[in-house]
Design a protein around this nucleic acid. Structure first.
Lengths: 152, 152
DNA sequence: ACACATTGCGCAATGC
DNA sequence: TGCATTGCGCAATGTG
């Protein structure tokens, strides 16, 4: 009762025709309607084909069945799109998280590298000292000079 | 020229479909009230009902101007959506890249840590040797260093 | 046969 | 004034 008023005369979903046509207005397509198959639930008995022409199309849209399906689909579409958006946001979030983690790792690497280089230096120094000490333990009596007392 | 032929009778975008929504009385879902404004500046007071005022609306949609605008917008929409999708894909790609980089960094950290621990162990060992004895044989691979200054 | 999920598309409102 | 975005419904198609 309601939809009829709304769609009755100015409805007939322009989809098929229009969309396609508009996409290629310059094309020489004289395509026909995709011939919807809205199913006829009105009679459980079955009448399946013989769609004389689009006269029933209207009835289809008025059908309670049809409206019900549309509404359900609209809902599903909404849901799907919501998810899609959510997913996109999550992905973006993930990027941010990964970026942060990367920075942390990078910092850690820097730290470890530094630590390592310090230790290596100590080793080198020690080695030198050993060498120097062994050869000339004491040249003039002074102590070996503790060099490289650096670190944290 | 072409659109009219296509839409002439079976078009009139049911968009007003929106109105369908609004009027959806029974429906238990979707209430929202978009309160559409059919952009019909020429007719004041609105024509919520009155099936006779439908001619102007039709004229509007048949207008060349209108069709032109629609076509432009459809194009823009397409473009925008394409970009949006592309962006989403890029973001996903970014996630993958960051993940990879992350793994690399993690591996590097592992390596550095190991290296560091080895060096530290050496240090400890050396320290022990120093404490326990005077000059241990060879802890770090370097020459034993003659430890007996006892002369001949 | 069937219900929900996805996707492409056009319309209109709104942002800029 | 015009393109860009966005929410929305329709229909085709995918999936179980």
């Amino acid at each position: 009762m309601s939809r009829q008023q709304q769609q009755a005369k100015l409805s007939t979903s322009d989809h098929n025709g229009v969309s396609v046509i508009q996409s290629q207005p310059h094309a020489s397509s004289l395509q026909q309607v995709p011939q919807l198959v809205p199913a006829n639930p009105s009679a459980p008995g079955g009448k399946a084909l013989a769609p004389s022409k689009m006269k029933k199309a209207q009835a289809d849209k008025d059908s309670e069945e049809y409206r019900q399906r549309r509404e359900r689909n609209n809902l599903a579409v909404k849901k799907s799109r919501m998810r899609s958006k959510q997913k996109a946001m999550d992905t973006q979030q993930r990027v941010n998280e990964l970026k942060e983690e990367n920075e942390r790792l990078e910092a850690k690497i820097k730290l470890l590298s530094k630590e390592l280089s310090v230790l290596k230096d100590l080793f080198l120094e020690h080695a030198h000292n050993l060498a120097d000490n062994v050869q000339p333990p004491n040249v003039d009596g002074t102590s070996p000079a503790p060099s490289a007392p650096n670190g944290q």
